[in-house]
C-alpha cells in the first residue's frame, strides 16, 4: 500500500486530557471504547464518524485523544460526558489541543501530575467509626477506600478532614 502524500492526508488534531482520579491508569482500549461510546451516544453515528475519535496514548495520568480537524469542540464535549471506563469511575479533564502529538507530550510535563505519596501521613484512618485505607495522598488531597473486600468506594477528602476526625 502506498502512503498518501501529505497534501492528501486527513488533517487531525490531538487533545490532551488529564485522567481523574489521580493514580487511575485505564487500559487504552477500554478508554477508547468509553470515548467512542460517549461520542456516539451524544452526537449519533453520523457525527461520531466525522469526529473519528481514537486514543493515541495513555501516559503519566494523561491521555492523548485524536480527532479530525474541525471537530475538536464536539470531541471535547463528548469527553466531558465520559464518566466510567472499564467499570471504574473516571473523569477526563481537557487540558490542551494541538496539531502534533509531540507538542502535547511536552505539555504533559506541565500538566498537574500527582505528587508522590507523602511518607509522613497515616496509612489508615477512622471516619465515622469505620476504618479507611489511604490510597492516594498528594498535597492537601487525600483519597481513601474503606477497608474490607466488600466496599471499595473511594472517598475524596483533604488532610484537614482527616485531622478533624
Amino acid at each position: 500500500m502506498t502512503v498518501r502524500p501529505p497534501t492528501l492526508r486527513e488533517k487531525r488534531r490531538y487533545v490532551l486530557v488529564r485522567i481523574a482520579p489521580a493514580g487511575c491508569i485505564p487500559d487504552p482500549k477500554e478508554l477508547y471504547l468509553a470515548v467512542h461510546d460517549a461520542a456516539t451516544v451524544l452526537w449519533g453515528d453520523a457525527v461520531a464518524s466525522l469526529i473519528h475519535p481514537a486514543v493515541v496514548a495513555v501516559e503519566n495520568g494523561c491521555a492523548i485523544v485524536r480527532c479530525r480537524r474541525g471537530m475538536e469542540r464536539e470531541l471535547a464535549i463528548a469527553l466531558s460526558t465520559v464518566t466510567s471506563c472499564g467499570g471504574q469511575r473516571i473523569a477526563l479533564r481537557t487540558c490542551a489541543t494541538s496539531g502534533t502529538i509531540e507538542s502535547l507530550r511536552e505539555r504533559v510535563a506541565s500538566v498537574h501530575r500527582p505528587k508522590p505519596p507523602s511518607s509522613g501521613g497515616p496509612a489508615e484512618c477512622m471516619i465515622d467509626g469505620r476504618l479507611f485505607m489511604v490510597c492516594h495522598c498528594a498535597g492537601q488531597k487525600v483519597d481513601v477506600i474503606e477497608k474490607g473486600f466488600k466496599n471499595t468506594t473511594r472517598f475524596f477528602l483533604t488532610t484537614e478532614d482527616l485531622e478533624d476526625q
Binding site: R89, T94, F156
Partner: peptide
C-alpha cells in the same frame, strides 16, 4: 463527587 465536577470551559461547551 469531585469526579462529577466540570471546569468552566467544559460547562460552557456543554451549555452550548
Amino acid at each position: 463527587s469531585v469526579l462529577e465536577m466540570r471546569s468552566v470551559r467544559e460547562i460552557s461547551a456543554l451549555a452550548s
